[in-house]
């Protein structure tokens, strides 16, 4: 039985490094801003990892442990360069890469399904200049389902017994 993971926060960042959605699950809610900073600083490490991966021609999406503060921050980048940043609560246990990859892939799927929502583009001008704006708007307050999917993943991670 692998040790249980606790998700503290999840961040989706667009290819141009604009935040799409930052969701925090840590119990004292006052730290929400902290995870914004964590997500933003992680982009540095992600840049570094991408450069390293580019040198070795690796196409791996999972970027591994980015850094440790009072949470362990993991990174994942989709093929379309949307970064998914996961903050796990620190515990003195080995975190299996496969677990983090599974969570990342679930989050990626949630994101993909939300972006595929045709209503997202209903009012968008048809020229693809604003495509990035459409992608970013997936995380806006208006679209509840994306949040719900992410929250559900968090619940599934934190309560594996229920799953």
């Amino acid at each position: 039985m692998p040790p249980q993971l606790r998700l503290n926060a999840v961040a989706f960042v667009s290819s141009q490094n604009h935040p799409i959605l930052i969701r925090t699950f840590s119990q004292p809610k006052q730290d929400e801003l902290k995870y914004h900073y964590i997500a933003h600083t992680s982009l540095d490490v992600i840049d570094e990892r991408i450069t390293a991966a580019g040198a070795t021609k690796s196409t791996e999406c999972y970027l591994g442990l980015l850094y440790v503060e009072d949470v362990a921050v993991y990174g994942y980048m989709t093929p379309l360069k949307v970064k998914i940043i996961i903050a796990l609560e620190l515990s003195d246990n080995v975190v299996r890469d496969i677990d983090v990859i599974t969570i990342s892939q679930a989050l990626h799927t949630a994101y993909r399904r939300s972006v595929a929502n045709p209503f997202l583009r209903l009012h968008a001008p048809s020229d693809n200049v604003t495509d990035h704006a459409v992608v970013v708007s997936a995380g806006s307050q208006k679209w509840k389902l994306f949040r719900e999917r992410v929250d559900e993943i968090c619940r599934a991670v934190t309560l594996p017994a229920a799953a």
């Binding site: 442990l65 850094y67 620190l90 080995v94 890469d97």
Partner: peptide, 17 residues
Amino acid sequence: LRALGLNPTHALQHPGF
């Protein structure tokens, strides 16, 4: 063992942290 994963509390970082 390493291939399985890493204990984040045992991951040494640069002194700036």
